[in-house]
Amino acid sequence: MKPKIMLTNDDGITSAGLWAAYEALEPIADVTVVAPATQQSAVGRSISIFEPIRATRVTMNGVPAYSVGGKPTDAVIIGLFALRLNPDLVVSGINIGENLSYESIMTSGTVGAALEASNQGVPSLAFSLQVEDQGDKFDDPSGVTDRFSDAKRVVREICEKILANGFPENAHVINVNIPTPVRGGYEITRLAEKLFYTGVEERFDPRGRPYYWIDGPLHEDAEEGTDVHAVQKGNVSITPITLDCTAFRAKDDLRGIFDGMAI
Rank of each mutant, 00 (worst) to 15 (best):
residue 1 M to I: 10
residue 2 K to G: 08
residue 2 K to D: 15
residue 5 I to A: 02
residue 5 I to M: 00
residue 6 M to F: 07
residue 8 T to I: 05
residue 9 N to C: 13
residue 11 D to L: 09
residue 12 G to A: 07
residue 14 T to Q: 02
residue 16 A to E: 11
residue 18 L to P: 08
residue 19 W to V: 13
residue 19 W to C: 12
residue 21 A to P: 06
residue 22 Y to W: 03
residue 24 A to R: 03
residue 26 E to Y: 08
residue 29 A to P: 08
residue 31 V to R: 01
residue 35 A to C: 15
residue 44 G to Y: 02
residue 50 F to Y: 13
residue 50 F to M: 12
residue 52 P to R: 08
residue 71 K to Y: 10
residue 73 T to Y: 14
residue 77 I to P: 13
residue 78 I to T: 10
residue 79 G to W: 03
residue 80 L to V: 13
residue 86 N to I: 15
residue 92 S to Y: 06
residue 93 G to S: 08
residue 93 G to I: 03
residue 93 G to D: 05
residue 93 G to Q: 03
residue 97 G to F: 02
residue 98 E to T: 14
residue 102 Y to K: 11
residue 104 S to K: 01
residue 106 M to C: 03
residue 108 S to C: 04
residue 110 T to A: 10
residue 111 V to P: 06
residue 112 G to C: 03
residue 112 G to V: 01
residue 114 A to W: 00
residue 114 A to C: 05
residue 116 E to R: 11
residue 118 S to W: 08
residue 122 V to P: 02
residue 123 P to V: 05
residue 124 S to P: 06
residue 125 L to N: 01
residue 127 F to R: 01
residue 129 L to H: 04
residue 136 D to A: 11
residue 136 D to Q: 03
residue 138 F to G: 15
residue 138 F to T: 06
residue 139 D to P: 15
residue 139 D to C: 12
residue 140 D to Q: 11
residue 141 P to A: 10
residue 143 G to V: 02
residue 144 V to Q: 11
residue 144 V to L: 15
residue 145 T to I: 13
residue 150 D to F: 07
residue 151 A to L: 14
residue 153 R to H: 06
residue 154 V to S: 05
residue 161 K to M: 01
residue 169 E to C: 15
residue 170 N to L: 14
residue 172 H to P: 10
residue 174 I to A: 12
residue 175 N to P: 11
residue 177 N to I: 11
residue 181 P to M: 09
residue 181 P to T: 12
residue 182 V to E: 04
residue 187 E to V: 06
residue 190 R to H: 15
residue 192 A to T: 10
residue 200 V to C: 09
residue 200 V to N: 14
residue 202 E to V: 02
residue 202 E to R: 00
residue 202 E to W: 00
residue 206 P to Q: 14
residue 209 R to Y: 15
residue 210 P to K: 04
residue 212 Y to P: 02
residue 213 W to Q: 15
residue 217 P to T: 05
residue 219 H to A: 14
residue 220 E to N: 15
residue 221 D to R: 15
residue 227 D to C: 00
residue 227 D to G: 02
residue 228 V to S: 04
residue 232 Q to S: 07
residue 232 Q to K: 08
residue 236 V to E: 04
residue 237 S to M: 06
residue 239 T to I: 01
residue 241 I to P: 06
residue 242 T to W: 06
residue 244 D to C: 13
residue 245 C to F: 12
residue 250 A to M: 09
residue 254 L to H: 02
residue 255 R to C: 03
residue 260 G to F: 09
